[in-house]
């Protein structure tokens, strides 16, 4: 969108300009939103790593499990109920770890470099105002009429520019927010699998379900 073909009136352009400026400021502030939530993700990932560490420490090593659950090579691998508690705990643990990596991936995507648009720079706007004033002087305007004409042209220019850059900035902000939302989803699933893995391992240990090495 460039110059408006039909310039708006003073009141309607002032109304729109105020609204566009609010949206512009919101998008400029939103740029840092994702970065400000990173400490939350760091804390949650710390909990996930702690759960991973605990559950992995409780799992029996692979060799005793194989010896205890598959004493004969002919035994079907997954038909043996003896190995299921260990297999289930390992799967939950793996899911938790993979989802934690997905959290980091999505956060990296959400915070990556992006191109934003700005209104300005100020020197160009000042020069534009001076050029407009010279133009209207050459058209014979002076005093108050000159000022009104320059202000009206500047307002139309700002309206078009704010409309253009705010739409582009909002698109970038939405991409960042979408990446962060996906990171939150992965984080919650990772936490869920971490809690399940911890509960499963604790319960299995209490009920003596985890296989031990054959004597």
């Amino acid at each position: 969108m460039d110059d408006l073909s039909e310039p708006l009136g003073d009141k309607s352009s002032a109304l729109l300009l105020g609204m566009f400026q609010d949206f512009y400021r919101q998008d400029v502030a939103a740029e840092e939103d994702v970065h400000r939530t990173l400490p939350f993700f760091a804390t949650a990932l710390g909990l996930i790593v702690a759960a991973l560490n605990y559950v992995a420490g409780q799992l029996p090593p692979l060799s005793p499990v194989v010896k205890a659950c598959w004493p004969q090579p002919s035994t079907a691998p997954l038909a043996n109920a003896c190995a299921w508690p260990a297999i289930a705990a390992a799967l939950l643990l793996a899911a938790e770890a993979v989802l934690a990596v997905c959290v980091l991936w999505q956060l990296a995507a959400a915070t990556r470099k992006r191109r934003y648009q700005r209104v300005g720079p100020e020197t160009s706007q000042l020069r534009r105002a001076q050029d407009l004033q010279a133009y209207h002087v050459s058209m014979g305007l002076e005093a108050d009429a000159l000022d009104v004409a320059v202000a009206a042209d500047l307002k139309q220019r700002l309206l078009a520019d704010f409309a253009k850059v705010t739409a582009a900035n909002r698109r970038v902000t939405q991409e960042r927010y979408a990446g962060r939302a996906r990171a939150v989803s992965f984080l919650l699933w990772s936490l869920l699998f971490g809690i399940l893995a911890t509960m499963f391992v604790v319960a299995s240990a209490k009920l003596d379900l985890l296989p031990k090495a054959a004597p």
Partner: peptide, 15 residues
Amino acid sequence: KPAGSLTYTITKGAN
């Protein structure tokens, strides 16, 4: 009459 958009682009974010 002077016309044309007065905007510029910046790049922000982590690398």
